[in-house]
């Protein structure tokens, strides 16, 4: 019985992971690619870890697998958020079908936030060395 559950979770996780990287290759722009990559990837990894927990069915292994699943599901959105903000603030080109952008004027303060002495300057810093 456990073997069948393990097999089902394994195949579902494998298919989701494969779809994630297929989307990574095929979708049109960076932020849309992140939709496929971070979430379907995390879901696939989580499913495979759960399959592993069903296969070695005892408390120590199950708890470790659950901890790993929690960790993956907790860090994937944080990483996605960081990369997405970096990509957006560095003015990555958005796909032409993007039809509304309410963030357009509010992003500049974010980039200069990490070095407080630059906050007072209103224009972007000069690229010269």
């Amino acid at each position: 019985m456990n073997d069948i559950v393990t097999a089902v979770f394994l195949i579902a996780g494998g298919i989701f992971s494969f779809i994630a990287s297929l989307g990574m290759l095929r979708l049109p722009d960076t932020i849309i690619r992140m939709h496929a990559a971070t979430k379907a990837g995390a879901l696939g990894a989580g499913l495979i870890l759960i399959a592993q927990a069903f296969y070695h069915y005892e408390l120590a292994t199950t708890l470790r697998a659950l901890a790993a699943v929690t960790f993956v599901l907790l860090t994937a959105p944080v990483a996605a958020h960081l990369i997405g903000r970096a990509a957006y603030c560095s003015k990555v080109t958005l796909w032409e079908k993007t039809w509304i952008d309410e963030l357009a004027n509010t992003c500049n303060w974010r980039v200069s936030e990490f070095e407080p002495d630059n906050n007072s300057k209103s224009e972007a810093p000069d690229p010269k060395e």
Partner: peptide
């Protein structure tokens, strides 16, 4: 940024690979 996303995906897939 694309490369960073790709690296992130690869590392998640490696975690899944280790579990499998």
């Amino acid at each position: 940024a694309d490369r960073i996303v790709a690296l992130d995906l690869i590392s998640i897939l490696i975690v899944a690979f280790l579990a499998a």
